[in-house]
């Protein structure tokens, strides 16, 4: 919810609020992308996860799989932190996905990408 606030703070308009909930794994991340991209008005996607019970490396694996299977390509901005952060960043890096480490920076970037 705070992610939406920060996007708006940076001058963007959130199209969809999707809270994957605590402990989300790969399947949930995949499903989340499918739901979000059903909306044709979505011009960019921000993944912002600070994992506690959720493991950041599971989220990263989900993002990597989702990107490979997406029905349409939109700019993707990823920020992952928290539990298993180092493993997550390694996975994303090996898959050629750049990750940001600050929510503010990520929000600013996705607003820019959606313009």
């Amino acid at each position: 919810m705070a992610t939406m606030d920060v996007i708006q703070h940076h001058g963007g308009q959130p199209a969809n609020f999707l809270d994957v909930g605590g402990g989300a794994g790969v399947a949930k991340i995949l499903a989340a992308f499918e739901i979000i991209l059903e909306d044709p008005r979505v011009r960019a996607v921000l993944v912002n996860i600070f994992g506690g019970i959720t493991r950041a490396d599971d989220v990263a694996a989900g993002v990597i799989q989702a990107r490979a299977r997406l029905s349409r390509q939109v700019p993707l901005v990823v920020r992952v932190a928290g539990t298993n952060e180092a493993q997550a960043l390694r996975l994303l890096h090996d898959a050629g996905i750049g990750a940001l480490d600050s929510m503010d920076e990520a929000a600013a970037r996705v607003v820019e990408a959606a313009r």
Binding site: M1, M4, D5, I7, Q8, F17, D19, G21
Partner: peptide, 12 residues
């Protein structure tokens, strides 16, 4: 959190 949340919706 929730300045941009629509009313009458459960947010997470």
């Amino acid at each position: 959190a929730g300045k941009t949340a629509p009313p009458e919706r459960r947010m997470g």
